[in-house]
Design a protein around this nucleic acid. Structure first.
Lengths: 148, 148
DNA sequence: ATGTCTGTTACTAGATTAGATACATACTAT
DNA sequence: ATAGTATGTATCTAATCTAGTAACAGACAT
């Protein structure tokens, strides 16, 4: 249960929300409710993956490296996912057992297939979608409040 | 990176491999290369989920509660998966931020969708498939060795 | 020059994971 | 019945992982 992917999406959505103005790690950290240093660490991963870029100095901050509509959640996942989603045991199974001998290679195959399916589903949503829905929902909630 | 799912599949494949004879936790633990107590803990989860049943006493052990062809990897995943695959941060985002206010509900939706895709893919493989492929591969490797 | 912001390192506390022991309970076999 | 076997569960520990924090050199704007 690793929350880095969620944080990365949050970061990118905040940057997209600011529409072209550089966003500081302090600002993002306040929205995510965590430490600016943690945000900077993640931003450097996102930059390395080509999703963001940064301006240093006064008035600087993070920017999207390409349009929000062209950043999918799969891209984000690849940028920050550390290891495998479905893990194998640290210890090797007993090679003397007919099942133990072959099970890990087989499990790896199936896990990879399942992970690919998850990623394909993630690819259907972009940061632009996230931004649109976050804002739209807020407005719906706002107007509902006006009516009620 | 939690390996319980992998271990659970391994357990069930070993039981299936023994073709109806009760399998002790000691035997399974040797194949998985871990502690019998850990295996028993997992077996009790699998039994609670209706995938296995157990005979106590001499000559006892674990059995499949239904045919291997009717146990999918999704069933196994549901039986032993503890929490969410893609996690949200422990701390709540800042509700004063337009993005922070709505992002978690939205992330939860997308994560659930992606997880469902992964589970659907897992559902395409059964324990019978696992057993068949483990044994088949072993034989292929064997015959290749004979040829080479 | 001065102040701002990033990028990175190092450290800490807390949570999670798996390994290990122990033992009451259930069952088989004789 | 009694002895032996195997499960089911509770508890503890060590190792690993995760996120939070502080610190500081380097880059940039004014």
């Amino acid at each position: 249960m690793n929350s880095r992917f969620a944080v990365a999406v949050h970061i990118l959505t905040v940057i997209a929300h600011e529409g072209g103005n550089p966003v500081t790690s302090d600002y993002i950290a306040a929205s995510v409710n965590t430490n600016p240093s943690l945000i900077r660490r993640m931003l450097s991963q996102l930059t390395r993956a080509g999703l963001t870029r940064c301006q240093m100095g006064t008035g600087g901050g993070a920017l999207l490296a390409k349009p929000a509509a062209r950043i999918t959640l799969r891209d984000v996942y690849h940028a920050v996912a550390d290891g495998r989603l479905l893990g194998l045991p640290r210890e090797q199974p007993d090679p003397a057992c007919p099942v133990g001998r072959g099970i890990q290679a087989l499990l790896t195959e199936r896990f990879d297939g399942a992970t690919r399916a998850l990623e394909d589903e993630l690819a259907r949503t972009t940061i632009a979608d996230m931004l649109y829905e976050v804002v739209e929902r807020r407005e719906r909630r706002g107007s509902r409040r006006m009516v009620g």
